[in-house]
Amino acid sequence: MRIGLVTDSCCDLPRDFLDQHQIVILPITIHGYDGTFIDSRDPVATRNFYRHQAEAGVTNFESEPFSVEQIRELFLSRLVLEFDSVFCLTVMQSRSQIFNHCTQAARAIITEYRPIREQANLTKPFTLRVFDSANIFAAQGLVVAEVARLISQQASNSEITKYIERLTQTTQGFLMPADLSQLRHQARRKGDKSVGFLSYALGSALDIKPVVRVYRGETTSVARIHGFHNGVEKLFLFAQAQLERGLFAPTICVSYGGDPAVVENMPAYQKLKQACKNHDVQLLLGEMGTTAGVNIGPGGVGLAFASEIEAVLD
């Protein structure tokens, strides 16, 4: 059985990983003051977007996901022919309409695919499952990466489904902005109180950075750390400690709002990389997608792991 994997461009994974596993991306359009940018996880275009955003100091962006009709067209024109079964993993539904759009499109796809496959002499039925990853950005990437691993190991649909259900309950994502202005602007626009005005004012004045955790579909501020580089170092050491305690899934994802080489050169990241090698855990580092970037700003860092123990960042 040919099993396909679809996600949206909120998913932070390296481009070479996406290509290797033939993961299909649902693009997201970013509307800014000087036009639009279509985020399809192109590394060069993403870095240019961050560079432009940092130079212009722009904070006012809107994102627009694929419509129900666009998703339906993608599946019926291509995916029902390329695959016999598809798993679609979206950014958490409390943050975007992508899950709802995919769910609505799935109803039409399942009722309309048969003549298309029959014309191509494909006799097997087509199946489609849509899942809310219950997470965002690097943590959404972890869920997708783990499903890609199971597909490559030729796991059955039922095995993959059960694993996704556990992953969505154990994957924990952490975000640290380099600058609070973008995070607060977007949080206010969406009614998110994770970073209030007082926290923003004090944080900006004292260089105190919040660490935002995303877990089971909710976002909360779990720590405040003085200095961005100090905070990132603590975040990597924290992930290393969780790794050594034991993870639910053998993957850690890291994303950066800019050139990932910046993170690669950090000593704490190198320590985490060595720990992952020692424990046979894959460490995936890639560009933070523009959807993440317009929410927490250029230069931000995302990190994710899956653990059956709710991790507490001191």
Results as ranks from 00 to 15, higher is better:
3 I>Y: 02
3 I>F: 00
12 D>P: 12
15 R>G: 02
16 D>M: 05
26 L>H: 10
35 G>S: 09
41 R>W: 08
42 D>H: 07
44 V>S: 05
54 A>S: 14
54 A>N: 09
56 A>V: 12
58 V>W: 13
60 N>P: 02
60 N>F: 09
65 P>S: 15
66 F>Q: 11
67 S>G: 12
72 R>L: 09
72 R>Q: 15
78 R>K: 15
78 R>P: 05
78 R>S: 15
81 L>E: 10
83 F>R: 05
87 F>R: 00
89 L>S: 04
94 S>P: 03
101 H>F: 14
107 R>D: 13
120 A>C: 03
121 N>K: 13
125 P>Y: 08
128 L>Y: 03
138 A>F: 01
145 A>S: 15
147 V>G: 02
150 L>K: 07
157 N>P: 10
157 N>K: 10
161 T>F: 05
169 Q>L: 14
172 Q>C: 06
172 Q>R: 14
174 F>L: 09
178 A>R: 15
184 R>T: 06
187 A>Y: 12
187 A>G: 13
194 S>D: 10
208 I>E: 11
211 V>D: 02
217 G>E: 02
228 F>A: 03
232 V>H: 09
244 E>D: 09
246 G>H: 01
248 F>H: 15
250 P>S: 06
252 I>Q: 05
254 V>S: 01
255 S>C: 14
264 E>S: 11
267 P>S: 08
275 A>C: 09
282 Q>N: 09
290 T>M: 10
291 T>H: 04
294 V>Q: 12
304 A>L: 00
314 D>Y: 04
